[in-house]
Amino acid sequence: MATAQAPETHPGELNDVPGWFWPLDQLLFTWFLERQTARGLRGDLLELGAYLGKSAILLGHHRRPGERFTVCDLFGSEAPDQANRAESEQSYASLTRQAFERNYLSFHDTLPEIVHAPTSVITEKVEPGTCRFVHVDASHLYEHVRGDIAAARELLLPEGIVVLDDFRSEHTPGVSVAAWEAVLNHGLRPVCLSSQKLYGTWGDPGPVQEELLAALRRRGDCSVSVQEAARHRLVRARAKGMQPPPFPRSRHYAAPAPAPRPVPPARPAGTARARRLAVDLLPPLVTRAVRRHRAGRVHRTPGARTAS
């Protein structure tokens, strides 16, 4: 569950930014993006739906020189239709563009390219076939998610990765229907599933799946299984006490103050004086006891018995 963020609060670490971006998905985002860099795949980054910027901050960290990073969100503005308006008012009434920008600029020097509009306009703002990674986390309504997935397909490179959030949450059935419709009818190939997100491609998922399986099986904080469904190979990953991957702290980070040294409990009054008296009296007492013992040994006749 996301934590609330006080107004004008600057996050010190990524975990200080509210949002439903769990450690396993932070790990998977990092793994896919670093793999693309290692393979020399260049392309732009796109996020549809940003909330307060938690996943956008991580994505922006992987933008390389010459690449664009675009974020599209309503940021609390009036939604284009009544259904979307009701969802926005219920779930994101406190969302503001200022909060997103404040959080993002705590970690980065410049903002991404922001499209302050419904996600239906994104194909007018981003060129087709230019993106290597698209995160879809905007509306949960079927009609809108279906359009967002179609936009992702148009904008992605052949080897690009799309991530669909909330594809199996109980309160987002519209996302589930749109996601599996894309898999069954529109060529989307699942790469892996986390507890909240579906990672897929319209390219060949085989090579990336094998590399991902090898990487996850080496970890002790993640369980992995492979299943088949409708002739699709599904890699399922589940965190087991996983911590978020390392991420640079923000410019506002302040190290926690050191814990105060424990204060020893107060001694009862008179304790020190009683200890000094005991030390002073101990030698004379021991000396007298030794003398009595020796005197008894000298005057005692060996083998003598008391008369009956």
Results as ranks from 00 to 15, higher is better:
5 Q>D: 11
5 Q>T: 07
7 P>V: 13
8 E>R: 14
8 E>Y: 11
17 V>T: 11
20 W>N: 12
24 L>W: 12
24 L>F: 10
30 T>N: 07
32 F>Q: 04
32 F>C: 12
34 E>K: 10
49 G>D: 01
53 G>W: 02
57 I>P: 05
59 L>S: 08
62 H>L: 04
71 V>A: 05
84 N>R: 09
85 R>C: 02
86 A>Y: 01
87 E>W: 04
88 S>H: 09
88 S>I: 02
88 S>D: 04
94 S>T: 13
95 L>M: 15
96 T>P: 03
106 S>L: 03
106 S>M: 03
107 F>N: 00
108 H>I: 01
110 T>S: 11
112 P>E: 10
113 E>Q: 12
119 T>A: 13
126 V>K: 03
134 V>M: 11
140 H>R: 10
142 Y>Q: 08
144 H>Q: 14
151 A>K: 04
151 A>T: 09
152 A>W: 03
156 L>N: 08
158 P>V: 12
158 P>D: 14
161 I>H: 06
165 D>E: 08
169 S>G: 12
170 E>W: 13
173 P>H: 09
178 A>E: 05
180 W>A: 02
181 E>I: 06
188 L>S: 06
191 V>R: 06
192 C>R: 05
193 L>S: 03
202 W>H: 04
205 P>S: 00
211 E>C: 07
211 E>L: 12
212 L>I: 10
223 S>L: 13
224 V>M: 07
234 L>I: 15
236 R>W: 08
251 R>L: 14
262 P>F: 13
262 P>S: 12
262 P>G: 11
262 P>K: 13
263 V>T: 15
264 P>T: 04
267 R>C: 02
270 G>T: 01
273 R>E: 05
276 R>L: 01
277 L>S: 01
286 V>A: 15
287 T>C: 11
289 A>H: 10
293 H>N: 06
294 R>A: 14
299 H>E: 09
302 P>C: 11
302 P>A: 13
303 G>W: 09
307 A>Y: 07
307 A>T: 10
